[in-house]
Computed example of a mutant assay.
Amino acid sequence: MTETRTLVLIPARMAATRLPGKPLLDIGGLPMIVHVLRRAEEAQIGRVAVATDTPEIAAAVKLHGGEVVMTRPDHPSGSDRIYEALKQLDPQGKIEIVVNLQGDFPTISPGNIRDVLPPLADPAVDIATLAAQIHTEEEATNPNVVKAVGSPIGPRRLRALYFTRATAPTGDGPRYHHIGLYAYRRAALERFVTLPPSPLEQQEKLEQLRALEAGMRIDVMIVDTVPRGVDTPADLETARRLLANN
């Protein structure tokens, strides 16, 4: 995976209801979006840019030396936002792999960002993502924890069969906590954004099911830990504590 063909895009917007102004919340003296930008830059897998519709986010990123793409405000999802950003940044079509890194993962490790790329070495794989094994009952039964269900196809690798908020699969054996970091083959992203929302996507409220229902292949790399997303004030305090210790 050479740097010239991989683009990391971080979609960011201000519309979070539980944490207003989330991307600009201070963590150790830096806005949260800048922490995510730094992790992506440290991963050293390619060009990094923040895709946003908010001038305040753009200004904060630029102030800290980051690249910004201004996108339309009416995108229904982060995938649509990064596709618009891709077309702006690379109209010639030279980029082959697009990594979608959520803007509320300030504690993600650069190594985990790199971990999402190996499945795309297989030309049969359209999209790659991450998961970590679940070790507690609370995590297994929490509907806010999305479970990745798949067939093992190698060490630390699954071929995804389904994603669900339910506790699945049932019975004895491992369950996996899905981590919302994706690497798309360019053609897969182009196809994905043209597809209408699918029935299971709408039922589970999980965008990645649209790809599976369309017959696209998603492979999952198993990593050791789940990076903590920031959705609540308690999450914010946890992120501040973790990053203060770095």
Rank of each mutant, 00 (worst) to 15 (best):
V193N: 01
V193G: 03
T194K: 10
T194V: 05
L195G: 02
L195M: 01
P196E: 00
P197N: 12
P197Y: 06
P197C: 10
P197T: 11
S198H: 00
S198Y: 00
S198T: 08
P199S: 11
P199A: 12
P199V: 13
L200S: 12
L200Y: 01
L200K: 12
Q203A: 14
Q203N: 07
E204D: 11
K205R: 09
K205S: 11
K205N: 13
L206V: 07
L206W: 01
L206I: 15
L206E: 06
L206P: 07
E207L: 14
E207Y: 07
Q208P: 09
Q208W: 15
L209K: 03
L209M: 13
R210H: 05
R210D: 04
R210F: 03
R210S: 04
R210V: 05
R210C: 06
A211L: 12
A211I: 10
A211K: 11
L212D: 07
L212Q: 10
L212C: 12
L212S: 12
E213C: 13
A214S: 05
A214F: 00
A214M: 00
G215K: 00
G215F: 05
G215T: 07
M216H: 07
M216V: 08
I218K: 06
D219K: 01
V220K: 04
V220F: 07
V220S: 08
V220L: 10
M221W: 04
M221N: 08
M221R: 15
I222G: 06
I222F: 08
V223W: 06
D224R: 14
T225S: 15
T225D: 15
V226G: 04
V226P: 02
P227L: 02
R228W: 01
R228G: 13
G229Q: 13
G229C: 11
V230G: 07
V230R: 02
V230W: 02
V230C: 09
D231G: 10
D231R: 08
T232N: 11
T232Q: 09
T232D: 11
P233Q: 06
P233I: 07
P233L: 09
A234N: 02
A234I: 04
A234G: 02
